[in-house]
Design a protein around this nucleic acid. Structure first.
Lengths: 148, 148
DNA sequence: TGATGAGAATCAAATTTTTGATAAACGTAC
DNA sequence: GTACGTTTATCAAAAATTTGATTCTCATCA
């Protein structure tokens, strides 16, 4: 290998995220939601009426994947979809009252983990981590350093 | 929601990792490997002869998932499995020369991304990010802050 | 008006991953 | 030596995710 594993920041990020998702997955299971379903509901709470394609971008999954997720959520009565009034081919998706309720339940579980995470850092350290992760994202997307 | 999305470090970590994996996935595709297959080969290069279960733990996936990955890799002649000399029920897995070669090819692609990442930080910042991520992992696993 | 292109949705198939359950091999304690 | 617990491997089924391709709607422009 041309680069030692210990130097690879990407592996560190991946490992931390996998442990985090494993914990969230276990927490959300009690609410009957997968991480992907929870992410979709969460995004819908912030952006009601968003299209499936936009929702897919917000959750960083493929449109087909999001379509499958929405199909399950709709089947459970957690979301409802209706044609956009102006653009007929676009389906606006919104949380139902049940969806809002279940999201609230699941989110309490998720927030427990977020709090454990937040408790491990000072406000300054948390801001630092946020900044470093944002710069990592920018670097992955190909943006030159210090350009933002 | 009881906690604003902007405050949630977990979401930041997840987003950064998803962008990172998306980039790695695209890079590894040219070598014909998924991220999971690459992770298994990578771990095998560092720990030859490891058991499937141990490999699963190293890659943070389920044993069944790793078994499926190894089945594909073995079918392609990238790894070979043989019974442990002392413990008959354990299968030791090792890279074949072909597996080593393909891993090298794939890893060059992966390292390109790691270098982009590394270039975004000073040595001190990289160490800081590593430290913060390790503490995040510890917090997720339930270890109290400052205990390590 | 008509052609072109972009964004959105969806069908279909293959692959990956998870979940649940079962069986084999070994170490340890009784 | 026998029972018990741990680790490993695997079978089987379900669910999630990816990939490729097609269709529909609308905006833009010639």
């Amino acid at each position: 290998m041309t680069m030692p594993a210990a130097e690879r920041l990407g592996l560190e990020i991946k490992r931390a995220e996998q442990e985090l998702m494993s914990a969230k997955q276990a927490a959300l299971r009690e609410a009957g939601l997968t991480v992907g379903q929870y992410a979709a509901l969460f995004a819908l709470a912030e952006q009601p009426g968003i299209s499936g394609a936009a929702l897919a971008r917000a959750c960083l999954v493929t449109p087909q994947n999001m379509a499958a997720v929405l199909k399950v959520l709709e089947g459970r009565g957690l979301v409802e979809r209706a044609a956009h009034s102006l653009h007929q081919h676009v389906l606006e998706t919104r949380l139902t009252p049940q969806g809002t309720r279940l999201l609230g339940l699941a989110d309490r579980r998720a927030v427990e983990i977020e709090r454990r995470l937040a408790a491990a850092f000072t406000a300054q350290e948390a801001a630092q981590l946020r900044d470093l992760l944002n710069r990592a994202s920018a670097a992955i997307r190909g943006e030159p350093p210090q350009a933002g």
